[in-house]
Design a protein around this nucleic acid. Structure first.
Lengths: 142, 142
DNA sequence: AAACTACATTATAATAATTCTAAACTATTG
DNA sequence: CAATAGTTTAGAATTATTATAATGTAGTTT
C-alpha cells in the first residue's frame, strides 16, 4: 500500500500519530480525484461502512478539527443546521442548492475577481468568498 | 405611544397577534435608526433587561422564526457555533471580524456588482452574497 | 363588559449536535 | 520490549434548538 505511506507522512507532518482510524480517514478524504464536501455524519457513515471495526464519533470530531486547524480541511457555514467541511481548502466560491441542500464549487472562471472598495483601518482581508443560492426555476417553466 | 401602534399593525399584517412580548420585540428590533445583527441570546438578554417580566426562550425562538419566515428578519450563517439574525433583510454583503466575531454590513458601493458566468440548468439564482473575513493586521505594524 | 375561542406563552421535557472525561489502548522511543 | 506520551472509546455533560401540554390572554361575540 504505497498510498498509505503518503498518508502516514502527511499525518506526521501535521503532528498527528498515524493510527489506523486516521489513516482510514485520510484515505476517504484525500484519495479522490476531485475535492468534495461532507458533514461529520456523512464521514462517520462512510468510515463505518468501509471499516470492519467501528469508529467513535468523538474520534471523527477530534480528527476533523485537527485537520481543519492545520489547514487540511475547511469548514463552510451556510446552513445553520449543518456544518459542511470541504477538502478543497483554498478560498473559493460556492453555489448552494436550496432544494437539495447540496453545495457545489465554483470554478475560478465562473466569477470575476471581486474588488472591495472599503478599507477597515487596522484590519486586513483574510478571504473573500461568494455564496450563490440557487433553487429550481419552476415558476418560469409554465 | 404612537410607535407601538405601528408595531401592532406590522404584527397584524404578518398574521401574528400583537401581544406585549411581541410588541417589545418589535420595539427592540425595528425602532432603531440603523439595522443591526443579533443572536437569539443577545435578544433574550435585551428583552429581559428592558421588561420587568421575564420572557421565555421558546417565545423568542418562535417569534424570531415567524418574523424570518415572513421576511422581516434574515438569518446569516457564518460561524457554525452562532446563528446571527439581521434586521436588514435585503441581500447584501458582510465583513466578518474574526477577532471580535462582529458582523459588519457592506454598503452597496463597497463592492462592485458580481457577475456569475456559470448557468446551472433548471435553477435560478436566488441571491449572491459576499463574505469578507477580516482580522487585525498586527504582522505589518511592526 | 362577560364569556367564549383561538392562538400565545410558559416551564419543562425532548432532541440533536458537539465537547468533555476518564479509563483502556497503541504507536513510538530508547 | 518496556515505558510513556499521545489516542481511542463509550458514555456523560453541555449547548442550542424544538416540541409539548397546561395555563393565560387578545379579540370577538353576545
Amino acid at each position: 500500500m504505497p498510498k498509505n505511506c503518503n498518508f502516514i507522512e502527511k499525518l506526521r507532518e501535521v503532528g498527528l500519530r498515524p493510527t489506523k482510524q486516521r489513516i482510514k480517514m485520510c484515505e476517504l478524504l484525500y484519495s479522490r480525484e476531485k475535492t468534495f464536501h461532507f458533514t461529520i455524519n456523512d464521514l462517520v457513515k462512510m468510515i463505518s461502512e468501509q471499516m470492519n471495526e467501528k469508529i467513535s464519533l468523538a474520534t471523527v470530531y477530534n480528527t476533523v478539527h485537527a485537520f481543519e486547524k492545520k489547514g487540511y480541511l475547511k469548514e463552510i457555514s451556510i446552513d445553520s443546521h449543518k456544518s459542511y467541511f470541504d477538502t478543497n481548502t483554498s478560498a473559493h466560491h460556492h453555489f448552494f442548492d436550496e432544494d437539495t441542500h447540496e453545495l457545489i464549487d465554483c470554478e475560478e472562471s465562473d466569477i470575476d475577481k471581486i474588488n472591495i472598495r472599503k478599507n477597515i483601518t487596522g484590519k486586513k482581508i483574510n478571504s473573500v468568498e461568494v455564496l450563490v443560492r440557487i433553487a429550481s426555476d419552476n415558476q418560469n417553466q409554465k
